[in-house]
Computed example of a mutant assay.
Amino acid sequence: MQDVKASSTWYQTLLGVRSGCEPDHPHRLVYDRLMSGDALVLQLHRWNAEEHPNLVGPDLAPHGHGVLLWFEVDEFDVAVDRARHLGAQVIEEPHVNPAPQHREIWLKDPDGYVVVLASPDGESAEA
Results as ranks from 00 to 15, higher is better:
Leu34Phe: 10
Pro26Gln: 03
His27Arg: 04
His25Lys: 01
Gln43Asp: 13
Pro53Lys: 01
Gln43Lys: 06
Val56Gly: 11
Gln43Pro: 00
Glu50Tyr: 13
Leu29Gln: 12
Glu22Arg: 06
Pro26Glu: 07
Ser36Gly: 08
Asn48His: 11
Leu15His: 09
Gly20Gln: 05
His52Asp: 13
Pro23Ile: 05
His45Phe: 15
Ala49Glu: 15
Arg28Cys: 13
His25Asn: 12
Pro53Arg: 00
Leu42Ser: 10
Val30Tyr: 12
Asp32Ser: 08
Cys21Trp: 08
Asn48Pro: 06
Leu15Pro: 08
Trp10His: 04
Asn48Ala: 14
Leu40Asp: 09
Leu42Met: 15
His27Phe: 15
Glu22Gln: 08
Arg46Ile: 11
Gln43Tyr: 01
Thr13Pro: 01
Arg28Met: 10
Leu44Ala: 02
His25Val: 08
Met35Lys: 00
Val17Met: 01
Ser36Ala: 15
Gly16Asn: 00
Leu29Pro: 02
Arg46Cys: 11
Val17Ile: 11
His45Ile: 09
Leu15Ala: 11
Glu50Thr: 06
Pro58His: 12
Glu50Gln: 11
Trp47Cys: 03
Tyr31Ile: 03
Leu29His: 12
Asp24Lys: 05
Gln12Val: 02
Val41Lys: 10
Tyr31Asn: 04
Tyr11Met: 04
His45Cys: 10
Tyr31Thr: 03
Gly37Leu: 04
Ala49Ser: 15
Pro53Val: 09
Tyr31Glu: 05
Val30Pro: 04
Leu15Phe: 14
His52Trp: 15
Leu29Ala: 14
Trp10Ser: 03
Pro26Ala: 06
Trp10Glu: 02
Arg18Tyr: 07
Asp24Gln: 10
Cys21Thr: 11
His25Asp: 15
Glu50Phe: 14
Leu29Arg: 00
Leu34Glu: 04
Glu50Ile: 03
Cys21Lys: 05
Arg18Ile: 07
Ala49Cys: 11
Gly20Leu: 07
Pro58Trp: 14
Arg33Ser: 12
Asp24Tyr: 07
Tyr31Pro: 01
Gly37Met: 06
Tyr11Ser: 00
Glu22Lys: 05
Leu14Asn: 00
Gln43His: 09
Val56Ala: 13
Leu55Lys: 00
Pro23Asn: 03
Pro58Phe: 15
Glu22Gly: 03
Val41Thr: 08
Leu40Lys: 04
Ser19Lys: 01
Pro26Asn: 05
Leu55Gln: 06
Arg18His: 07
Arg46Gln: 15
Gly57Gln: 08
Leu55His: 10
Arg18Asp: 04
Asn48Gly: 07
His52Glu: 14
Leu34Gly: 04
Ser36Gln: 14
Thr13His: 13
